[in-house]
């Protein structure tokens, strides 16, 4: 799969299955793929938390830094500017607060490395993405998601996402089920809330308990979006077999990137199932 053509001119969220799943490594790879293209896209990137810092603030693991190139737009925290070796021009301060101060937008004027620290609230992320695309003319926006949070995807309607999974042999089955669930959720039709007698709308999260409260005659169940589904793959399949699920907001799974540990690609693909589309899965792009 060519990363560049999959990502170009879109707002793409990179979300991880867990902390240290390899999102930032993937971000750097995606950025480099875009930079290598003949026609340069006006590129902007940001994070929904803290990324690019030398050490992981939670586990203390060494973290990859995020490279920024001349002309790119970067959203980060005011305090992150003190430690960057990139040259930058300040374009905007957003009302959003990050864990390390106000969110600022800079245009890189000299290549360097930068920590990307962003706001965590969906509303703020949405506002910044809209500003990047509107007033600042960004064509491709890449948002590095925080930890295993998935809900940030919900903040930008129409956004697409890349799911980075850490797959270790001893829990490959659960990783495959999680990925399979995300794929199946991304295929649920979305759009205008259908109306009618046999339509039931779930307020908030869709949980096993709430399924029990759905009226008997219900045919279609409306859920806000896929981030509100708190079910296992088996529970979801049972639910989807009984009702027609509809999401009010859609997202598209661009593809998943699986970083494999002690498990072969073929073995993991088998766990995903033969009908898992190959164009929705890439393996660690750093692996030879």
């Amino acid at each position: 799969m060519e990363i560049k053509s999959a990502v170009e001119n879109k707002t793409v969220f990179i979300v991880g299955s867990e902390k240290n799943a390899g999102k930032t490594v993937f971000l750097n790879f995606a950025l480099d793929s875009l930079r290598g293209a003949k026609r340069k896209t006006r590129l902007a990137f940001m994070s929904t938390g803290v990324d690019g810092e030398k050490e992981d603030l939670v586990f203390g693991n060494p973290k990859p830094r995020v490279a920024a190139k001349k002309g790119e737009l970067v959203v980060t925290a005011q305090s992150a500017l003190a430690s960057t070796d990139a040259g930058y021009e300040l374009l905007e301060i957003f009302p959003a607060k990050t864990v390390l101060g106000r969110a600022v937008l800079v245009r890189i004027v000299r290549d360097g490395n930068i920590e990307i620290i962003g706001p965590q609230s969906n509303a703020h992320i949405s506002g910044i993405v809209a500003a990047l695309r509107g007033g600042f003319g960004a064509e491709t926006i890449i948002v590095d998601g925080a930890a295993s949070r998935f809900t940030q995807v919900a903040s930008a309607d129409g956004a697409e996402f890349i799911y980075v999974a850490r797959v270790e042999k001893f829990r490959a089955q659960s990783a495959a089920e999680a990925l399979r669930l995300i794929y199946e959720l991304s295929r649920v039709p979305a759009g205008k809330t259908p109306r009618g007698k046999n339509v039931f709308r779930i307020e908030g999260a869709l949980t096993a308990d709430k399924i029990r409260l759905i009226p008997k005659e219900t045919e279609t169940v409306v859920v806000e979006d896929c981030t509100k589904v708190f079910l296992s793959l088996a529970e979801w399949r049972k639910f989807a077999a009984k009702y027609n699920p509809v999401f009010e907001r859609s997202f598209r799974l661009l593809f998943a990137s699986a970083n494999l540990y002690d498990i072969a690609a073929g073995e993991f693909a088998k766990l995903l199932g033969a009908d898992f589309p190959p164009d929705k899965l890439v393996f660690n792009p750093y692996a030879l």
Binding site: V25, N28, F29, D32, S33, N284, P285, Y286, A287, L288
Partner: peptide, 16 residues
């Protein structure tokens, strides 16, 4: 045959 042009590191099979 190690291409580091868009990668800071590579994951390589131990035998290789």
């Amino acid at each position: 045959s190690l291409d580091f042009s868009a990668r800071e590191f590579l994951v390589v099979d131990e035998t290789r």
